[in-house]
Measured scan of single mutants.
Amino acid sequence: QSYDVTDELPLPPGWEMTFTATGQRYFLNHIEKITTWQDPRKAMNQP
């Protein structure tokens, strides 16, 4: 797995990073009650 500086940034409020039983990373948004494979920190860093 390649290193990404985004991995060091804190998640936005309400978000949690977790893993499936097979080790795949995904993200939970407790405020909007959604899950996604997309890292919400990457969207924050788009110009």
Rank of each mutant, 00 (worst) to 15 (best):
P10Q: 10
N29L: 00
N29K: 01
P12W: 01
M17T: 10
D7H: 15
P47G: 03
E32G: 11
P13K: 11
T6E: 08
Q46V: 14
L9V: 15
T6S: 13
R41Y: 00
S2V: 09
T22L: 08
Q1H: 02
T20P: 00
P40C: 00
T22S: 12
R25N: 04
N29Y: 02
H30F: 04
E32C: 12
W37K: 06
K42C: 10
L11C: 05
A43D: 15
E16Y: 01
E16S: 11
D7L: 08
S2K: 11
E16I: 07
T36F: 00
W37N: 06
K42W: 06
I34Y: 08
K33F: 03
D4Y: 15
R41H: 02
P47H: 03
T35S: 12
P40N: 01
T22W: 06
P12E: 03
K33P: 00
P13L: 10
Q24E: 15
G14N: 12
L9E: 13
W15D: 04
H30W: 05
K42P: 09
P12S: 03
R41S: 04
T20Y: 01
W15T: 02
T6I: 13
I31F: 09
Y26G: 03
T20F: 00
M44K: 13
W37Y: 11
K42N: 15
Q46G: 12
D39S: 02
A21M: 11
R25A: 07
E8V: 10
S2F: 13
Q24Y: 05
Q38H: 10
E32F: 15
Q38D: 09
L11K: 02
E32N: 08
T35W: 03
W15A: 00
T36N: 02
D4R: 09
E16M: 05
N45W: 13
Y3V: 04
K33Y: 02
A43M: 13
T18K: 15
N29R: 02
K33Q: 09
L28Y: 07
Q38P: 01
Q38T: 10
T6K: 12
L9A: 15
N45F: 10
N29I: 00
G14W: 04
P40Q: 02
E32H: 12
A43P: 14
V5M: 13
T35F: 03
K42G: 09
A43N: 15
Q1T: 04
N29M: 00
L28N: 04
M17Y: 07
T36A: 05
A21K: 13
N29A: 00
L11N: 01
F19Q: 10
T20E: 05
D4M: 04
L11M: 12
T18H: 07
N29D: 05
Y26S: 03
Q38N: 10
D4V: 10
P13T: 11
Q24S: 08
P10A: 11
P12Q: 04
D39Y: 02
P47A: 12
T18W: 07
L9I: 14
G14K: 04
V5C: 09
Q38V: 10
A21Q: 07
G23R: 05
D39T: 02
P40T: 01
N45V: 12
I31H: 15
M44D: 15
A21C: 09
W15V: 02
R41G: 03
P10G: 10
Q24A: 10
F27D: 01
W15M: 02
Y26K: 04
M17L: 12
E8D: 11
G23D: 06
T36G: 02
V5S: 12
T18L: 12
D39H: 08
E16P: 01
A21P: 11
Y26L: 05
T22M: 07
T6L: 10
Q24V: 10
L28F: 06
T6H: 06
I34A: 06
I31T: 14
T35Q: 03
I31W: 11
I34R: 07
H30M: 07
T20V: 03
V5I: 15
V5Q: 09
N45K: 12
D7P: 06
